[in-house]
Amino acid sequence: MTATRVENSSRQHDRRRLRPLILLGLAIFVLLAFFFSLHQGVLQLSPGEMLRTIFSGEDSVNRQIICGIRLPRNLTAALAGICLALAGAILQGIMRNPLASPNLIGVSAGGGLGAVIVLIVLPQYYLLLVPAAFGGALAATLMIYLLAWKRGIQPMRLVLAGVAVSSLLGAIINALLLFYPDRVVGILDFMVGSLSARSWRQVHLIWPYALGGTILSLLLSRRLNILVLGDAAAVGLGIRVERTRLLLIAVSALLAAAAVSVTGLLGFVGLIAPHMMRLIIGSDYRYLLPSCAMFGAGLLMTCDTLGRIVMPPVELPVGIIMAMLGAPFFLYLLRRKNTA
């Protein structure tokens, strides 16, 4: 008994000292994933050639493929991964619920409904897809927050309101799909989450959110640590709980809405990335948030690349690859933790 206790605490200690190393490792993973995705595809250049193509000013076909197609798609994947993973980590903290993910505050259902309305009912306004998804996601979050409000927000009531509103919006989506069966195929990419044909426009759309959200969430990381202790304890330590929680929900809703409107419904990253990082780096948000951001970016880039190269010329949407690889690995980590 005592022996295992001592071992436990020394292992804890070791992990604390390892945290900077883990962050460094994740940074290397992101870089590797980045160059791997730039490199892989029908056109394969050696690393040296690739760098020369990128930095040479000439307008060649190779440069068009690398800088005009792969690079923006890659950056979109990385930025969406950052947004979704951060949103999930923040939500799991404020809800004190391990199942919390961007889906839970209605981002997926609301964004999905906005996208479905544009793609199916008003296809002539295709350009409105991104703003409609973004607006739908935020509107759903706002609705859930207001429904859950009763002299303050209790996390559990928020979770329940989220489930209820999401199923309502889901029902509306399905009803629309039934009314327009001929147009269902067009929406499929959005529903599973896809990065195909993403260009610099999407990068420009999403990077301000990714950057702002990252900075804000890092500034709020100590407050998140305190909030996890429970509302009463947090008030006792001088936190304005309602205000902080509203701020954090707003940050995560903006992050997730930006990502979802550009990539489609990829909420799964927001569920698994924080869990995996919690197992690896621990639950201190000052380390958890940066590690989630990096892991989310690397994961999405890798999965998207795999989707491009496993069975060419068919491209598998990143959402499918991620779920097929992510879910088993996630389950493996959970089981390993329980037996340890």
Binding site: S9, Q12, R15, R96, V228, L229, G230, A232, A233, V235, G236, L237, G238, I239, R240, G282, S283
Partner: peptide
């Protein structure tokens, strides 16, 4: 509220801590 937290502390009846918090 932050200033009050230096004068008055609260031990709530129910509280929670992450598994790995020392």
């Amino acid at each position: 509220t932050g200033q009050l937290a230096r004068e008055m502390a609260i031990l709530p009846q129910l509280n929670s801590a992450p598994d790995d918090l020392s």
